Simulated assay, not measured.
Amino acid sequence: MDGPEPAREQPLPEGLPPGELRRVARVVLLDPDDRILLLHGFEPDDPAQTWWFTPGGGVEGDETREQAALRELAEETGLTDVRLGPVLWRRICSFPFDGRRWNQDEWYYLARTRHTAVSLGADLTELETRSVMGLRWWTSAELSAARETVYPTRLAELLRTLLDDGPPSAPVVLSPEIVQGYG
């Protein structure tokens, strides 16, 4: 996506726990076979609590969300020759992780790559090193059949719609996800 990001922000949902709203850029990275790349994360203090999620993370300093998405993708996967497409989805989420509450305004960018040999990047943060155990490519069918936790929770449905219909003309605002605790 070229140019400055839109200035409009989502209104905050009722029930959002107190705390700063972190600006986050995530990447829906697809390979030539339309598989999506997901990272496998876990709660550092309870490795039995696991989930899958898209690459991405918080905006730093004065970088744009697009710059943050590309930086995070490079840090987490080592991929640097990815061109971002449009923002597909946006969501507000709140969840406990690593002893604190995270309130996030997440934007999901479409991207494609020809490189399917990926591994966890060498530039992971200390927290990522303690909470990410791997990554893998998922087909739409595998994602739909998954019994594991995946974020956003509707990712299988969203991916199927993306593959069937193409990117939306404007970002789809997803329902907020507010996780009170684990288990």
Rank of each mutant, 00 (worst) to 15 (best):
M1G: 15
G3T: 13
E5L: 12
A7C: 12
P11S: 09
P13F: 07
P13K: 12
P13R: 11
E14N: 13
G15Q: 06
G19M: 08
A25C: 09
R26D: 13
V28Y: 00
D33S: 00
D33G: 03
I36M: 05
L37K: 04
H40Q: 14
H40R: 15
H40G: 14
G41H: 04
P44S: 02
P44Q: 01
P44H: 01
D45M: 01
D46C: 06
P47I: 06
A48S: 15
Q49V: 15
W51H: 08
F53T: 14
T54E: 09
T54M: 10
P55F: 01
G56P: 04
G58K: 11
G61P: 14
D62E: 15
D62F: 09
Q67T: 12
A69C: 13
R71D: 04
E72P: 11
E72Q: 13
G78W: 00
G78D: 04
G78E: 01
T80Y: 00
T80I: 02
D81A: 06
D81F: 00
G85H: 02
P86T: 07
L88M: 01
W89Y: 01
S94P: 14
S94L: 11
G99D: 01
R100G: 09
R100E: 10
R100D: 08
A111K: 00
R112L: 08
A117N: 05
A117F: 02
A117G: 09
S119F: 04
A122L: 11
E128G: 12
E128N: 07
T129G: 05
R130Q: 03
R130D: 03
R130M: 01
M133W: 07
G134T: 08
G134M: 06
L135I: 10
R136V: 13
T139Q: 00
T139C: 05
E142K: 09
L143Q: 09
S144R: 11
A145G: 07
A146H: 07
V150Q: 10
T153M: 12
E157K: 11
E157C: 11
L162W: 02
L162R: 01
L162Q: 02
L162V: 06
L163S: 06
D164Q: 08
D164T: 11
D164C: 05
G166P: 01
G166F: 00
S169F: 03
A170W: 00
P171Q: 02
V173H: 02
S175W: 02
P176R: 14
P176A: 15
I178D: 06
V179Q: 13
Q180T: 13
G183C: 13
G183F: 12
